[in-house]
């Protein structure tokens, strides 16, 4: 019998597979397809202080082995998420919940993280300082070590629960950003968010996305994500949630060998609603073939 459980900070996950923020709503749509309790944890849709409609459409574009999105943080606002969406999710799901918080100012991050910290339904707070879609926000915080450190420090001051800072890959030195988060009190690092990208419609000669640019995700970005998880594992002592193009049990193992304690599955959920349970079911036979009895022994095992 293979042990697939991992520990994120002090929170026990029955397996390391977590649907990624923005690809899973608040869980309700996927409850139609399968029992959510098979998941290691659930990461909620990115949440801001006020309700947001997001960007204009089209917000979605095809890419080789992946997709672009420019949803722009559509969400009902922190109050509705904590008071309506989460209690509704709790009727279907009893495992760990990761709230994902975005903001356009330090004050907004602090406001939302404090609220999430007080919710009995939230176990971990993931702070998105990396969404590339919102022109006045996310991008700039995650793109500099100084700003990333400042946001970390500010949310740390109001949160008792574990804080994972979610990093953007659109930077020169990911290790430097991760170190700034660690130095300012983060409990963990989540990476990567999407890669800034675009497509052009060759018939009308205009960008496909109404927002011009969007974030690339899917299997195309997996090797980039893996490289960055590797670099961050070398740079900090914090647990890492690795994500970016994970689509099969082998990807989970690879991410963990690079240094991830847990793994998020994003774009694959949209292509195949059963992506997460299929990956989870595929882990024990794969681990047996690899001669691994405890999945946790894989974490960082490729480092020399």
């Amino acid at each position: 019998m293979v042990d697939t459980s991992v520990k994120l900070c002090d929170i026990q996950l029955k397996n390391p597979v977590i649907p990624a923020s923005g690809t899973f709503g608040f869980g309700h749509e996927f409850a139609h397809w399968y029992d959510l309790n098979v998941l290691g944890a659930i990461c909620l849709k990115g949440t801001t202080k006020d309700p947001r409609f997001g960007n204009e459409t089209p917000r979605i574009a095809e890419a080789p082995a992946g997709m672009l999105n420019a949803v722009g943080l559509q969400n009902p606002g922190i109050e509705a998420v904590l008071e309506t969406e989460l209690p509704a999710l709790r009727k279907l799901y009893s495992g760990p919940v990761i709230a994902n918080i975005s903001g356009f100012s330090k004050e907004e991050y602090v406001f939302c993280c404090e609220k999430a910290d007080q919710s009995p339904h939230v176990d971990i707070i993931e702070v998105n300082i990396s969404c590339p879609n919102v022109q006045s926000g996310g991008m700039s915080f995650g793109a500099s070590a100084k700003d990333a450190g400042e946001i970390t420090k500010a949310v740390r001051a109001v949160c008792k629960k574990p804080i994972f800072m979610k990093l953007t890959p659109n930077v020169t030195d990911i290790a430097e950003i991760a170190r700034a988060c660690e130095a300012n009190g983060a409990d963990g690092i989540s990476l990567i968010n999407t890669l800034l990208a675009m497509r052009i419609d060759i018939k009308n000669r205009k960008p496909v996305l109404a927002n011009t640019t969007g974030g690339l995700s899917g299997p195309a970005v997996f090797p980039v994500a893996l490289r960055m998880v590797w670099q961050v594992y070398k740079a900090v002592k914090l647990p890492i949630i690795g994500m970016g193009g994970v689509s099969c049990p082998e990807d989970v193992v690879e991410m963990m060998l690079a240094g991830a304690t847990a793994v998020q599955v994003g774009a694959s959920n949209l292509q195949n609603p059963f992506a997460c349970p299929e990956i989870i079911d595929g882990l024990p036979p794969l681990l047996e073939r690899l001669g691994v009895s405890r999945i946790a022994e894989l974490i960082g095992a490729a480092h020399y």
């Binding site: 709503g25 749509e29 997709m67 999105n69 949209l270």
Partner: peptide, 11 residues
């Protein structure tokens, strides 16, 4: 994106 209400791509 998904076609079943999860991703908010077609709002």
């Amino acid at each position: 994106g998904c076609g079943f209400g999860a991703c908010m791509g077609c709002a």
